Amino acid sequence: MYAVIKTGGKQYRVASGDKIKVEQIAADIGQEITIDQVLALGNGSDLKIGAPLVSGATVKVKVVSHGKHDKVRIFKLRRRKHYQKHQGHRQAYTELEIGSIAG
């Protein structure tokens, strides 16, 4: 069984036992969270699509860790104008382990 969930403005296709990295969630490591924004549920050839959400469907996840992705380097240059700018960014994430999918 799999589900399409929405968290942090993005959509993820998840199945039980998967580990995914999502936008940072304010939760402690080891805490269980219930995600109720389920857009679709699938089980083999059976597919249940919500409009926009599947009513009564939930996904239980466990917070595994928090961290930061690799650094993205930004370099801006305007030629012949004596302008250069260096920047960097590391996006924070929360790693989740998918538990049970109920729908």
Results as ranks from 00 to 15, higher is better:
G9C: 08
S65I: 09
V72T: 12
Y83W: 11
S16P: 11
Q91K: 15
K71L: 13
I35Y: 06
K19M: 10
K71W: 12
D70F: 07
L39R: 01
A102T: 15
G44S: 12
H66L: 07
V4L: 07
V14S: 06
I33R: 04
V22N: 01
Y83L: 10
G103H: 08
V4N: 03
D46A: 14
G56K: 07
K6R: 11
S55P: 07
I29T: 09
D36L: 11
A92L: 09
R78Q: 01
P52T: 12
K48S: 14
A102D: 15
G8C: 08
K62Y: 01
S45C: 00
R79H: 10
V63A: 06
H86K: 15
H82Y: 00
L39D: 06
F75I: 14
I98A: 01
K48A: 15
L53E: 08
L41Q: 02
I5L: 14
L77R: 12
F75K: 13
G44A: 02
G99W: 07
K76E: 10
I25K: 09
K6G: 04
G9P: 10
Y2D: 05
Y93H: 06
Q37E: 13
G67C: 00
H82N: 12
G44W: 08
I98R: 06
L53W: 06
Q87A: 15
A26L: 05
E95D: 06
D28C: 01
E95A: 11
I25N: 03
L53P: 04
N43S: 10
A40M: 15
K21Y: 03
K81V: 13
D70P: 05
V14F: 00
I29C: 04
G30S: 04
A92I: 11
L53R: 02
S100F: 03
T94L: 02
I101E: 01
K10M: 13
Q87P: 10
G8T: 02
D18Q: 05
K76P: 04
E32A: 13
K10W: 08
K68A: 12
K19I: 09
K71V: 14
I98V: 00
Q31F: 06
R90A: 09
L96A: 04
G9W: 02
A92Y: 09
R90L: 12
D18K: 09
Y2I: 03
A15R: 14
T7I: 03
K60P: 03
E95R: 01
G50E: 00
A15D: 10
G88Y: 05
Q37W: 09
Y83D: 14
G30Y: 04
M1H: 04
G67Y: 05
L96Q: 02
E23A: 15
M1D: 07
G44M: 14
Q11G: 09
G99S: 10
G42E: 03
E97H: 01
H89D: 05
T94D: 03
G17P: 08
Q87V: 07
I29F: 01
R79S: 11
G42V: 08
A15F: 00
F75N: 04
S65C: 05
S16E: 15
A51H: 04
I49M: 02
I5D: 07
K19Q: 03
Q24I: 07
H69I: 02
K10V: 05
P52I: 10
Q91P: 09
Y93L: 11
G44F: 06
